[in-house]
């Protein structure tokens, strides 16, 4: 079983890659005026969806890096798998909001508002699981 630090690093990689892709899509859309003069609305929807969790992950990684000499316990397999599955599912659903918008009858901003209905509670569950896993000592 990998150590808790290794598990955190893997989860961090999942989050950084997936949210990085979504960031790039949104940046390119903003550059090409995909949302017209309403780009701020798109960003104000997107940032709260990832920044709290991403901020937590980065903070813990920094702490782990600073505490390199302390002994590292093994991770709980169940918690690790649960966090990984929840994170991948959440980021996948978040990505669908962008990637399926060309097929949707709603406009991109309307679709984002609708997606908040299910992404909000989902984010709460993911953030809870990740918070517990990242703050736990073993």
């Amino acid at each position: 079983m990998p150590t808790i630090k290794q598990c955190r690093q893997r989860l961090a990689i999942i989050w950084l890659i997936c949210s990085g892709i979504l960031f790039v899509i949104l940046i390119v859309q903003t550059i090409f005026k995909h949302y017209g003069e309403k780009a701020a609305e798109a960003w104000s929807w997107f940032l709260p969806m990832i920044m709290p969790t991403l901020g937590l992950i980065i903070a813990v990684l920094v702490r782990d890096f600073r505490d390199a000499t302390t002994e590292v316990p093994a991770a709980s397999r169940f918690m690790y798998v649960l966090c990984a599955l929840l994170s991948i599912s959440y980021l996948f659903v978040l990505g669908l909001t962008f990637l399926l918008s060309p097929f949707s009858p709603w406009t991109p901003l309307e679709l984002m508002k609708q997606a908040s209905l299910y992404l909000g509670p989902f984010q709460g569950i993911v953030a809870g699981a990740l918070g517990a896993f990242f703050v736990s000592k073993s």
Partner: peptide
């Protein structure tokens, strides 16, 4: 960690 979490949320 707690402080970092709060800061990240405030930043977003």
């Amino acid at each position: 960690i707690g402080l970092a979490f709060v800061l990240a949320f405030a930043a977003s």
